[in-house]
């Protein structure tokens, strides 16, 4: 097949959005860039949740890989003296994929509530380990020094902008790849697995293999999100693996819905905006609001906010 037919409108739109976001970094105030970085990094983790949701699986423990990504960056840059952003990203990815490749063997056997609760339990194990590890700063975590880029160390004033552009570039690349995946054969079969595993088996395919692959993929994007978050905040702590963090990812995933690759990004940005204001005005009722909104989504918008954007009855990846 020629390359021409495989570039579709969504992919072009993603490329344009990536370029626009990167360009905006030059003019936008830093606090805005900072919030965007965090929201987009978080959205990567949410993409992992969505990948699994398309298979009918809900992971309440994506914080596990978010945390692994963050701590991989933290450990490598603090203890091994690695400062190159690309090496750090690769390390985060490799660490999460390695862990997921092992845990996936167990997880791929489970569905429904078992998958949900086991993923939650696994993330809480990491949380417990991190909290108890004095060498890793226990509950406080530790700071992550600034990154270099293929040997180039940006001037102190430029650091933040460069980190922003890197985030946009990574997020854009992942978004493009995910867009390809959603429309691919495997992406199509993932939906089939959600609908009817037995039939998938009788088509000559292995549902478990696809679930395993998706689990590893979700872990990989979550770790990238964790690494980018560590770059942006310059800090990692056990909170990254905490159940409430994982819960937010599920929340954002449900908020956006699974119908489009852009949905998690928009939902994540919306979530960050609302969260920033909610924290300011009602710091003690944030979870209460989240819970109520979640119930409202389940009852009124079961396919997420994206279903509002979308034309009725037309569901495309």
């Amino acid at each position: 097949m020629s390359a021409k037919t495989t570039i579709d409108k969504t992919q072009v739109a993603l490329l344009i959005a990536t370029a626009a976001f990167a360009a905006a970094g030059v003019i936008a105030p830093y606090w805005l860039c900072f919030l965007t970085m965090l929201a987009l990094a978080k959205a990567l983790v949410v993409q992992g949740v969505v990948i699994q949701m398309r298979l009918g699986l809900v992971s309440f423990g994506q914080g596990l890989f978010f945390g692994i990504g963050g701590y991989a960056v933290g450990i490598a840059s603090n203890f091994w003296g690695i400062s190159d952003a690309f090496v750090l990203l690769a390390l985060a990815l490799a660490a999460a994929v390695a862990v997921a490749a092992v845990l996936g063997l167990l997880m791929a056997r489970y569905r429904d509530i078992f998958f949900a609760m086991l993923s939650l339990a696994l993330s809480m194990i990491l949380f417990g380990v991190l909290v108890k590890s004095q060498g890793l700063g226990s509950t406080d975590g530790f700071n992550v020094p600034a990154q270099s880029y293929l040997g180039w160390v940006p001037a102190p004033g430029q650091q933040k902008l460069v980190a922003y552009v890197l985030t946009i570039a990574v997020v854009g690349t992942v978004a493009l790849l995910l867009c390809r995946y959603l429309g691919s054969g495997a992406g199509q079969i993932a939906e089939a697995v959600r609908e009817n595993e037995i039939r998938v088996e009788y088509l000559g395919l292995s549902p478990r293999w696809l679930i395993y692959a998706s689990y590893v993929m979700a872990a990989g994007v979550a770790a990238l999100g964790g690494a980018l978050t560590a770059f942006a905040t310059g800090h990692v702590d056990p909170e990254m693996a905490y159940w409430a963090t994982s819960g937010e990812f599920v929340f954002i995933a449900l908020l956006g819905g699974t119908a489009h690759v852009a949905a998690p990004f928009l939902a994540s940005i919306l979530f960050s905006v609302v969260r920033t204001y909610a924290f300011e005005y009602t710091p003690h009722t944030w979870q209460l609001i989240l819970g109520l909104v979640l119930l409202a989504i389940i009852v009124f918008l079961p396919k997420g906010l994206w279903s509002l954007v979308q034309r009725e009855g037309k569901v495309r990846a």
Binding site: G56, I113, H284, W286, L288, L290, G291, L294
Partner: peptide
């Protein structure tokens, strides 16, 4: 509703009750 959706519903409940307890 199916079991997994009920998990999400009760998760929402968990969030609500956590804050209510604090209040």
């Amino acid at each position: 509703q199916n079991e997994i959706l009920m998990v999400i519903v009760t998760y929402a409940l968990l969030l609500i009750l956590e804050d209510l307890t604090k209040l």
